[in-house]
Amino acid sequence: MNNDLKPVMEGIFEVGPPSRLNGAICPECNKKFFPKPMVCPHCLGEVQNIELSTEGKIYTYSILRTKPPYGLPQPYAVGWVDLEADGLRIFSLLDPDRISDLDFGKRVTLRVGAIGVDNNGQACLRYYFTPKDGGEQ
């Protein structure tokens, strides 16, 4: 991976291996969040940084066939992924090279890679989930 590239948004993930998404937990409410909020939106207390699970399964997804934004591949797929260990459903780009393998309930793993450009038109790193081989439910 090109280590000179910046993440698409600062502070969202740690570049691995293994790459991790930066989440947060409120110790009072025991609720987890992604991305990290300023404070817990339920009690306005301080939240603590946590690393989120790198494993999940696809809740829903879609494939965009028309001209993509941010220099993303055409076509590309996005979806909502359930991180069951964290009780969170998060939005994510899905592996552009594995579009034909996507399905509901498909087990997926977190990756970070150089895909597309950022708001300044510069090549950048994005997080995405890729189907786990043989892990289909």
């Binding site: 991305p35 829903t60 997804y61 494939i63 934004p69 941010y70 950022d118 994005r126």
Partner: peptide, 26 residues
């Protein structure tokens, strides 16, 4: 909006609704 994480990760209005359509069908 270009400062939203979801937008930067590839969310545009048509795929937001397509994900709902796929889920409703399933």
């Amino acid at each position: 909006g270009s400062t939203e994480l979801d937008t930067l990760e590839g969310l545009v209005v048509p795929n937001a609704f397509a994900m709902r359509a796929n889920l409703h069908m399933a």
